[in-house]
């Protein structure tokens, strides 16, 4: 018996298939949110354990993408929340993550433009950054982002627009 085969009501979905399809997109989604490679690694592992636990109760494989992204996003937000709570200083997550970006490992500092762009993203609120990343990097439709985050489509459009303007402003002013 394949131990990783769990059956949903709609059709059989193999955990290994989900892992192969989503491990890299989810890693990059998580990495853009938590910045530090080691943190992204831990969050990714926790995400897949939760995916494994819940895969059997997934109603439709059509919802798989937004479902796995929702789990990953929740794990990211939980991680950032924990980091905020355990931080000794009063600096916010944006500043903390910018510090990690500036002195972390597994970051190519020669890519100046990309570095600046990531710094610009870290000036956004957590929500704005999440919406921007899902739309810009993961190329999700607003409906998919709505299914992932639970934020209404109208709010998402406004949030993405504001985030984009803020990033563009940072890029031209700095």
């Amino acid at each position: 018996m394949n131990i990783f085969k769990r059956h949903s009501t709609a059709e059989a979905v193999s955990f290994k298939e989900v892992l192969s399809t989503y491990e890299q997109p989810l890693y990059w989604h998580i990495r853009r949110m938590v910045v530090v490679h080691e943190d992204a690694q831990d969050v990714l592992q926790e995400t897949f354990i939760k995916i494994y636990r819940g895969l059997g109760s997934l109603k439709s494989s059509e919802a798989l993408k937004t479902w796995v992204y929702r789990i990953a996003t929740n794990e990211c937000l939980r991680h950032l929340q924990r980091k905020r709570e355990t931080a000794l200083s009063t600096i916010d997550n944006g500043e903390m993550l910018t510090a990690s970006l500036m002195e972390g490992e597994h970051i190519d500092y020669d890519k100046e433009m990309e570095m600046k762009f990531q710094k610009a993203l870290l000036t956004l609120s957590e929500n704005q950054r999440l919406v921007f990343n899902l739309r810009y990097y993961d190329e999700m439709s607003y409906d998919e982002i709505h299914a992932t985050t639970g934020i209404s489509v109208d709010s998402l459009k406004v949030t993405y627009h504001n985030a984009k303007e803020k990033v563009k402003h940072y890029m031209t002013e700095n």
């Binding site: 853009r32 500092y109 890519k111 762009f117 810009y136 984009k164 890029m171 031209t172």
Partner: peptide, 12 residues
């Protein structure tokens, strides 16, 4: 600006 940067990141 967005087009210039594209989807590349400095993360490795």
């Amino acid at each position: 600006i967005l087009e210039k940067v594209g989807k590349k990141t400095p993360f490795t």
